[in-house]
Simulated assay, not measured.
Amino acid sequence: MKSGGRTTTAVDTHVKHSGHATGHVRGLNGLRALAVVLVFLSHKAHVETVDVGKLGVWIFFLISGFLIIGELHRNRVRIEAGSARREAVMCVFFMKRALRIFPIYYLLLFALTIAHTLFYQRDVDLGLAWHYFFLSDYWIGVVKDGWPGTVSHFWSLAVEQQFYLVAPFLLVLTPASRHPMVCALVVLTGVAGHLTMHAAGASEPLIYACSPLNFAVLALGGLCGMMGQESGLVRAAGRFSTGMAGALGVVVFATQPVWSSWALPFPAVGSAWIDIGLALSLCVLFAWIVNCPGSVVVSALELKPLDYLGTISYGFYLFHNLIPSKLGFAPAWFAWLRAPTWIHTLCELTLQFALAVLLAHLSWHLIEKRLLELKKPFEAAIGRRLPARRLRTQTQPR
């Protein structure tokens, strides 16, 4: 069967119907931008009525699970069809992850180590040794049982890196037909583990950073990456979730003046079931967004400022919490201008946000983008070194 000038095989058809095709997925960069803004507001504006930081991190987890598990699933299909080798798939995967994550991360850690030795937060245990090995979540939840220092946000990077270490072995070595079941088991295990931690009275930092529910959210993103294209149920659920999110936003904005004294009518705001419901709701909304590229919401997420902020979001996330919270703090000057307090706060946040964007912009153009351009040559070299067995058999002389 011909399609677009090339032969469409059964493998191609299976890939198309067993998950999203490779290429640009509309709205993902906008979602990344929304995620880093939520995390920024949590760390710098100290929004506490709603845990916007958790929302932002879980959006990142959903995107990572969607892309990574979807890619591994498609590669496993290629392996089963004989058009790829396991060794090549694994090498390409780890090469891509290393180019994307390691350079700027370790450069920043190296600079922080020097600065911490000389002058930066010398009276605070930053746990830098743990961050070098992507064990920030363990350091926060078990070793320190708290959130000291300005590098605590590295815990989510540790969770993702641990996911990257396990996912390729779990999925590349497992038949593609079983991938949805594997992800479902991870979700169920994560939910059960989260409930168990709450029942055992685990501390808030331990639950936040080390709960297996974090891996369940990654698996939920993976299920979105393997599901078929848009369905009526996904569209309806997505519209409902969007409406609920909009209503929640209006309520939060309207109650902003009383945030400091407002309390929810139930005792445990961060209870296990609320977390689980939040994760599932985010998943439904995310599934609708990635399956309805023509919706108004996706069009809004594709706006150029959001798209670019999403492109540089990794650097933004790394740098934003290291920017001094006192940057832009000038009470005497604003008192002389007789400006209200909210204007002073807005100016502080705007200046800190702009600096984080500038640092992320420089990081992207000077380091990250240039390194990512090496992916295709490296992938081609790996393909030549480890050719697919089917192709190698076809080229053998008779």
Rank of each mutant, 00 (worst) to 15 (best):
R384I: 01
G56D: 13
T311P: 04
R76P: 02
T345C: 05
I68R: 07
V166M: 13
A287Y: 01
I323P: 00
F266Y: 12
A272V: 06
L391A: 11
L213F: 00
H361N: 03
Q352D: 07
I343E: 04
Y138I: 09
S271T: 07
V251D: 08
K376W: 03
H179T: 04
S261D: 06
P293I: 01
S313N: 12
V187E: 01
L264K: 09
I382F: 00
S313D: 10
T393W: 12
Q256C: 03
V297E: 06
D137R: 13
P257M: 13
R384H: 07
N29W: 13
H131C: 05
T150E: 11
L374S: 06
P305W: 14
H198C: 04
S136H: 08
G383N: 15
I312Q: 03
Y132T: 14
V25T: 11
F353C: 13
E204I: 11
P377H: 02
G82I: 05
F134L: 06
F102E: 09
G270R: 09
R74T: 08
L170P: 03
W259P: 05
F329Q: 13
V298Q: 00
A381V: 02
L306S: 09
S136M: 12
P257K: 15
A216K: 00
F240C: 12
K16T: 12
V217G: 01
F163A: 06
E160D: 07
G4N: 10
A268Y: 10
T174S: 12
F93Q: 05
T7D: 02
I68Q: 06
H131F: 11
A247G: 08
I382H: 02
F266G: 02
R122Y: 06
G225E: 02
V142S: 11
H73K: 11
V166Q: 06
I114E: 10
I367N: 06
G270T: 14
A339N: 08
L34D: 02
N29I: 06
M181G: 10
L322K: 14
L285Q: 13
I69T: 13
R26E: 03
V143M: 03
T255E: 10
C347A: 14
S211W: 02
P103V: 15
A354R: 13
A339C: 08
R235C: 01
I382P: 00
F215W: 14
C210H: 09
G238I: 02
P267R: 15
F66M: 02
A356H: 09
F319H: 13
S177R: 14
R398N: 01
T7M: 09
G294Q: 04
R389S: 05
D275I: 03
D137I: 04
V89R: 01
R26N: 03
R74D: 04
T7H: 09
R239V: 13
P103H: 14
I69F: 08
C347W: 12
D145A: 05
H179I: 07
T395L: 08
S3W: 15
E379P: 00
N29A: 12
G5T: 09
V36E: 05
L322I: 14
L218H: 04
T242R: 10
A129N: 09
W333E: 03
M181W: 11
A10C: 14
K326V: 09
P397Q: 15
T49Y: 03
L359D: 10
F169D: 13
A247P: 08
D145L: 12
